[in-house]
Simulated scan of single mutants.
Amino acid sequence: MRAAIYHGERDIRVEDVERPEIEDPSDALVRITHTCVCGSDLWPYRGQSDRDTPSPIGHEPMGIVKEVGEDVTSVEPGDRVYAPFVVSCGECEFCRRGLHTSCVNGDGWGGDNGGAQGEYVRSPHADGTLVRIPDRHADDEDTLRSVLPLTDVLGTGHHAAVSAGVGEGDTCVVVGDGAVGLCGVLAAKRLGASRVVAVGHHADRLDIAEEFGATETVLGGSEGVDDVVGHVTDLTHGGAEHVLECVGAASAMETAAGVARPGGTVGYVGVPHGMGDGLDLFDFFGDNVAIRGGIAPVRAYADELLADVLQGTLDPSPIFDKTVSLENVAEGYRAMDEREAIKVLVEP
């Protein structure tokens, strides 16, 4: 089969590799029909995090089940499914608590399961990992584009909003205008926030934030507001009780701390990078600002978010602003790296 293989900094190649096969009775083999490039894929792409070379890459698969092991009961060949960005058994202590990302039997996509930017993937623990899309929606391309972000960014944005404690009538601030931040805006509105201030560095992305329900946007950087924290605290009359940090950089966490009202909560889901030099926690400490969040247990949110997407009340698909074939996936990486695309959809 053909698959995207990481060979080092800015070196993604599509190569012939061995197709994965059923190895365990709990496995399923899935033919990938849709996948995408994630912002977290860019860290190794830019040489800013370690990754084995060569190795399969990608972690947001959607496709059609081709074969199942004898113990699999939740899906069967022909079913349309998607999978969260981590493998989970669905049965251990942490899965039962809704912390599927801490599954004691968990795994990632890559290695001998094929990675998710390829033609096939083997799903370990298929019953605990795969989410079946009802047959009536299985061939609706518009619906499938709306479901695909549930593999990662929609569930991650939702986790930020839940961790920040967003509820009916609340005011919140979303820091970050990437795919996760935009999905955080959607999630905050879904949870009932009456006021959502979206903070970012790209005017076109903040336009999508408004489309998703942001009541105000703040553009930072050379063409926008220099003192973002001051501007947001003025807008919110002293800061927001609920802040979503959706970037992972120290500067974003500092912004989140600065715009949080004393006694508020920051829900953080950005993969931490650049914080090793020391994030100053005094701003959190001094104002009793709580920090909650971490890697999103996307599987825990799958049923409720999928139901809303399928009934048409939740549509994150505008985050996909570029589509490439699998053979041209390197172009997708380049476009996201150079901020020419928010999120790239890949069609094998």
Rank of each mutant, 00 (worst) to 15 (best):
T313D: 15
R299M: 03
F320L: 00
D287S: 05
A300D: 07
S317L: 01
A300E: 09
N288F: 08
G293D: 07
V309Y: 09
G293M: 01
I291S: 00
Y301P: 08
P318Q: 06
P316C: 02
Q311M: 08
A290R: 15
L306M: 15
D283T: 07
P318T: 12
L310R: 11
I295K: 14
A302I: 11
A296F: 06
E304Q: 12
F282Q: 10
K322P: 00
I295M: 02
D287A: 03
E327W: 10
P297W: 03
V289P: 09
P316T: 13
F285H: 14
L305P: 14
Y301L: 00
L326R: 10
L314Y: 09
K322D: 02
R292K: 07
D321Q: 00
S325F: 12
S317C: 04
G312A: 07
L310A: 01
E304Y: 04
V324M: 05
F282H: 14
F285C: 09
I295S: 05
D303F: 01
A296T: 11
P318E: 09
V309Q: 04
Y301W: 13
T323C: 00
A307Y: 10
V289D: 05
V298S: 03
L306E: 13
P316K: 04
G312F: 14
E304C: 00
K322L: 06
V298Q: 08
N328Q: 15
T323P: 11
Q311E: 15
N328K: 15
A296M: 04
D283W: 05
L326S: 09
T323V: 13
F285I: 14
N288Y: 10
I319T: 07
N288T: 09
F282N: 12
G293I: 10
V324Y: 12
Y301Q: 03
D283Q: 12
A300H: 15
R299E: 01
L305M: 05
N328V: 10
E327I: 05
G286E: 11
I295Q: 08
P297Y: 01
V298T: 15
A296S: 06
A307T: 10
A290E: 11
E304K: 09
D287M: 06
G293A: 08
D315N: 13
L314H: 13
P316I: 01
S325M: 02
R292A: 07
V324K: 08
P297M: 01
R292S: 13
F320H: 14
L310W: 13
I291K: 06
P297D: 03
F282T: 15
A290N: 15
